[in-house]
């Protein structure tokens, strides 16, 4: 019964609080990061050369260094040049930049997978570049990119836990404090794991629903 009380009165309220904080991190990071990735990915596939190179460098840097290092630079490093970010701002900014770099890779791949012939066909029908992009390339690229982008969002849900290291107390942070206080690591971290599993399942459910909704016979399968 003692166990039960501990869970109901200590673990669940703390983790619920943490869950809300995690959501505050994940929702803006995932949505803004996806937009950033779409923009950067588009520029990397079709942009003018200097811009394309700049975006390539951005993606290389942010995919090539650990997220934790990026967060440390944002939170502990920037003050040395006079920029002070709150833990929340530093975390969200770091997540957006990191996830944007990965998303750009999925988006770029999706664009490159579209047969050039379809672009020729739009040109031959008198489409402007903007019109081909909007009505032929994007609807297809979006469907091609969806599984990869969804995967990245699922990653983001889990690596959002790194925010607690730069002192933004979210789900993992709340749990860690609790575990240390009561010296009950196993139960608490197991519960944290379940919370993440819950978020990922929810995200997966939404992504599968979206994939079904956008399904087109024969498209992207074989």
């Amino acid at each position: 019964m003692d166990e039960w009380n501990f869970f109901i009165h200590q673990v669940v309220p703390a983790l619920n609080r943490g869950l809300v904080q995690s959501m505050w991190l994940i929702l803006p990071s995932a949505s803004i990061g996806l937009c950033l990735g779409a923009l950067v990915g588009t520029l990397r596939a079709y942009g003018p050369l200097p811009l394309r190179k700049a975006c390539d460098i951005y993606a290389t840097v942010f995919r090539g260094t650990p997220l934790l290092v990026q967060l440390f630079v944002l939170y502990f490093g920037l003050p040395s040049i006079g920029i002070y970010l709150s833990p929340y701002t530093a975390a969200v900014l770091g997540f957006i930049l990191c996830t944007g770099a990965y998303q750009s890779e999925y988006v770029r791949g999706a664009f490159l997978s579209i047969r050039r012939g379809q672009l020729l066909a739009t040109q031959a029908l008198g489409f402007s570049s903007m019109q081909s992009m909007l009505w032929v390339i994007l609807p297809q690229a979006m469907r091609r990119a969806l599984p990869g982008c969804g995967n990245e969002i699922i990653y983001l849900i889990k690596y959002s836990s790194l925010a607690y290291i730069i002192t933004f107390i979210e789900l993992t942070g709340e749990g860690k404090i609790l575990a240390v206080k009561y010296f009950r690591y196993t139960e608490v971290f197991f519960a944290i794991g379940l919370y993440y599993l819950f978020m990922v399942t929810l995200a997966n459910f939404l992504l599968t629903w979206l994939e079904k909704k956008l399904y087109i016979p024969g498209f992207g399968r074989g």
């Binding site: 012939g117 379809q118 066909a121 008198g126 297809q140 498209f219």
Partner: peptide, 23 residues
Amino acid sequence: KQDLYAYRQKVGMIFQDFNLFDH
């Protein structure tokens, strides 16, 4: 550009590999 787009609308093209829009 506008002339080019208008011209292409008046000259249809059929490709060897069809190039239908897959979606």
